[in-house]
Simulated scan of single mutants.
Amino acid sequence: MKLTLSILFFITAISFGSCQNSESTPEAVKQTFQEKYPGENDPDWHTDAHGNWEANFKKKGEKYRADFKPNGDWIETENSIKDSELPQAIKDKIKELYPDREITEVERVESASKGVFYDVEFKQKGKNMDVEFDSEGNILH
């Protein structure tokens, strides 16, 4: 019992340790966020495994996540969308290449390095597989 409680305490401490509040978020990150998303004043800030900053916020009722380097450079912003919102070219490519795979999640991603793309997650034999498509249905590598 003591071991179970100790493990639970340790996991909880680690989880809280990875969360950050807006006071510890670098000013450059907060400034870039405000420039990119004016009027969005209450994001939840966290750091990821790479040391980048993530802002979770809602825009017109939809959930978004924007990622920034510690120096304030914007990396990407993503939000979940429905399968039905995918461009038709992507739907056609999925039907052609992955007809037997179940889609588990779809995200629209706006990236500083790749532009706009769609990240489609498939479930295949108990494992998840991500495939990135541009709006024309081409697979990105």
Rank of each mutant, 00 (worst) to 15 (best):
E27C: 10
D100I: 00
D130I: 03
Q31S: 06
K82M: 01
E76G: 02
I7L: 13
Q20F: 00
E78Q: 13
I14P: 02
I11A: 05
A112F: 04
H50V: 08
G137C: 03
A89R: 06
N138D: 01
Y37Q: 00
A13S: 10
G126A: 06
Q34R: 13
K127P: 05
L86V: 08
Y98W: 10
E132I: 12
N41L: 11
D44R: 05
K59S: 11
K91L: 15
K95A: 13
K58Y: 09
N21P: 11
S113P: 00
K30E: 07
N79C: 08
Q124D: 15
A112E: 11
N21K: 15
S18V: 15
T25H: 01
Y64L: 05
L86H: 10
I81G: 07
G51D: 05
S22V: 06
V131M: 07
I11D: 01
N71S: 08
G72L: 02
K127H: 11
Q31H: 02
E121N: 13
P38E: 04
N79Q: 09
K114L: 15
G17W: 10
K95Q: 10
K93I: 10
A13I: 13
E105V: 05
E35H: 07
K82E: 08
M129H: 05
S6Y: 13
C19N: 12
T77G: 01
D42E: 14
T47V: 14
S135Y: 02
W53L: 03
D134N: 03
Q124L: 08
Q124V: 08
D67W: 01
K114T: 12
W45T: 10
P43D: 02
I90S: 03
D130F: 00
D83S: 14
N21C: 14
K60R: 12
M1H: 11
M1Q: 12
F68E: 02
G39N: 01
K95W: 04
K63D: 14
E78F: 07
H141S: 11
E85T: 01
Y118I: 09
L8K: 09
S18K: 14
E54V: 00
W74V: 04
G39F: 00
T25G: 03
S22L: 04
G72H: 04
G51N: 07
I7P: 06
S18W: 14
F16W: 08
E85F: 00
V116D: 14
P87T: 12
N138R: 03
H141N: 11
E76F: 03
F9K: 10
D48A: 05
I139D: 07
Q124H: 13
K114P: 13
R65G: 00
A112L: 05
E132H: 15
T12I: 12
K58D: 15
H141L: 09
A55R: 00
Q20H: 05
L8Q: 13
D67R: 08
R101N: 15
K82R: 03
A89H: 04
D119K: 15
I90M: 09
I94A: 07
E102H: 09
D67L: 05
W53Q: 02
G72F: 00
I90F: 04
A112Q: 06
I11T: 04
E76D: 08
Q124I: 12
S18C: 13
A13D: 05
F9Q: 12
P38M: 02
E105K: 07
E62M: 06
S111M: 07
D44A: 07
K123R: 15
G61V: 02
K59F: 06
R65D: 07
L86Y: 06
